[in-house]
Amino acid sequence: MRRIVWLLFCREWRLAWRRPGDLLNPLVFFAIVISLFPLAVGPEPGMLRTMAPGVIWVAALLATLLSLDGLFRSDYEDGSLEQWVLSPHPLALMVLVKVLHHWLICGLAMVVLAPLFGLMLALPASVLPVLCLSLLLGTPVLSLLGAVGAALTVGLKGGGVLLALLILPLYIPVLILGTGAIDASLQGMPVTGYALWLGCLAVLSLSLAPIAIAAGLRIGVSE
């Protein structure tokens, strides 16, 4: 069991690094969406500061969704997914590894980049750790929930818009808690409650989402 997890991780890692462009695209998208807002509403720091939590979180939501659209598609098209489904190893475990690998590349990179954008949106330096913490706890939930949608739309041509329609409503609690944490920190209030709730959601989705993803993929390959 441990061996297959490790081998799968290596495979995903190799596949990702053989096409480095695909790794970068969601991050560039994240950066562009955030940069659009000051251009749209003006560079006044007070306004940017109030908007910053929302802007960064919405950008993270959209970037995650964009990057997840193709998560299972190439494996579906070349028949790899059939072999996964047929394997004696638990499918839920394998998809969990795949999604966590995706998060390591996409979600973690956003966590690392976020302080930079926080500064650009006039957030005070004292808030930046909370920004990172909220993203660190929230983005795995985004990846896992989004992967459920990606699994359900795996065989569909042009599933991108449909994926957004299915999954964005489910992202709302993460959005509320994530931005709430940053807002609270901006007002000098404690953020432990938010962090605990986000952690709860992360644990919940870690344990339940893989089952739904596996079910979705089984349905997809039986098409």
Binding site: L162, L165, E223
Partner: peptide
């Protein structure tokens, strides 16, 4: 939307 996007009824 998902129900309409998938053409196979069982799927």
């Amino acid at each position: 939307a998902l129900g309409q996007a998938i053409s196979n009824r069982e799927t």
